[in-house]
Simulated scan of single mutants.
Amino acid sequence: MSYFNNTFWFKRFAMIISFIIVSLILWNTYVFFQRFKQDERSKMEIFASAIKEFESNTDLNASFNLENKVLEKIKGIPLILTDENDAIISYHNLNEKKATDSIYLKKQLLVMKRQNAPITINYVKDKKQFVYYRNSDLLYKLTYYPIALLLILVLFLSVVYQFFSSNKIAEQNKLWTGMAKETAHQIGTPLSSLLGWIAILKTENVSKDYISEIEKDVYRLSTIANRFSKIGSLPELQKQNIVEETKKAYDYLKSRTSTQISFNFEAQNSIINVLLNNELYGWVIENLIKNAVDAMQGKGKINVIIKEYEKQVKIFVSDTGKGIPKSQFKQIFKPGFTTKKRGWGLGLSLSKRIINNYHKGKIHVLKSEPNKGTTFEIVLNKAI
């Protein structure tokens, strides 16, 4: 519990610190942007003063040198000099090839008018010129800096969130694994006792049929205990006949299901070898058949069909139940997802993990129609 509390407060603290840091950076960026913009304005005012000086100075060499020095200072800041009627007199720091097009110059002039107020030059009585300019490329890049910073922050927070989420999930998985193994251990004690009682019953005058059924249930409990003990560890796969292993799970549930449900089992061949952990694979088949029984509400038909291909074997489990909406085809395999009033929503999630992760196969909903039924497909590689 302390781990989750510490994680909760650490995440909150990290978010607050991140927000403060980003706010300070954005504020400093804004201040720098305004200063840089003011600096460009000052340069334009110097340029305007130089133009005025140039117009009134009779020394052409001195004026030419002054203009060159000023132009060197404002390098990188696009500008256009116009008269009172917006006629373009000259331009600087624009694309030389594009600037030969008058339409391009007019568009640039409109951009400049939107960005900055013009600087007026009064060099002769009743005559004015105007200096229009737009932000330099450096200033443009600076405007996108906060956006880039926010994207980096979002990425950083996403990584942090994923890190803590994965840690939380890993911690929960350890808890579930420990509970499963402890359950298997606890089941082991009464199982041993039951086996002893079965041995005693065999010596008494008890029907062999009764003892056989009890043995089946005890074997079933033993299988369940073994399944739980394997959770969290990589199971051992052995070459097994998948037809036989599927039939075992099928027969067990068939004999313990309502007679209002008809069962059908088909297989192309009697022997198809696959690398299996028979206990875990049997768990998958049982989950699918149990879900089918629930979907049909105790009345309908279940088909289990095995088809062999060149390199693969496919197992189809279908029912005539209420069906699954297409939007839930993938959701039903997520842990905790269930449409039942009672249930943990772990059966199909575990089935997918057993087939996909342990057996390197695939399990999915092949097709489903409302009130007509659902077909699950399991695909496994054949043993070489």
Rank of each mutant, 00 (worst) to 15 (best):
Q162K: 04
Q34K: 14
I384A: 11
K382Q: 12
D294S: 11
N28W: 12
N116M: 10
K239H: 10
K98G: 02
A62M: 10
I306H: 03
E310Y: 09
G361M: 02
S349K: 05
E67A: 10
V206Y: 03
N122G: 07
P190M: 11
N226K: 15
I211N: 07
L139H: 03
I16E: 02
V111H: 14
K113E: 15
I272M: 06
N273M: 07
W9E: 07
L280W: 10
D251A: 04
G373A: 08
T374V: 01
T120W: 09
S207E: 13
S23F: 15
L350R: 00
N93W: 08
S23D: 00
E377T: 02
Y210Q: 13
N278H: 08
I200C: 02
K311G: 09
P325L: 01
S229M: 07
A199S: 13
K216M: 13
G188I: 00
W197I: 04
V218A: 11
E45M: 09
I214R: 07
Q260W: 09
E286A: 06
T82K: 10
R220W: 08
K174S: 13
F36K: 12
A148Y: 10
K322S: 04
K340R: 10
A295T: 08
R12P: 01
F228R: 01
K314N: 11
S18T: 15
S192E: 07
Q38F: 08
I224G: 03
E84W: 02
N273G: 00
I20P: 14
I119H: 02
G282V: 11
Y140A: 08
N356L: 03
K202Q: 09
E40W: 07
N5D: 08
K52M: 13
I152T: 01
G361V: 03
K314R: 07
E236W: 01
Y123I: 01
K52N: 15
I187M: 15
W344G: 02
W344H: 14
L288P: 08
N65R: 07
Y145N: 04
T183L: 00
K69E: 15
K216R: 04
Y144V: 05
M44P: 03
H359P: 07
F163I: 00
I200H: 05
I302M: 09
Y161I: 02
N287D: 10
P235D: 09
F4D: 12
K360C: 01
L234Y: 06
T177H: 05
V365K: 01
F316Q: 04
V379S: 13
K69S: 10
K352E: 14
E67F: 09
D294P: 00
G323P: 10
L194K: 11
V243Y: 10
I354C: 06
E84M: 13
D217A: 08
G232H: 05
I332Y: 12
N95H: 13
E245Y: 05
R342Q: 14
A99Y: 05
K107L: 08
Y281F: 15
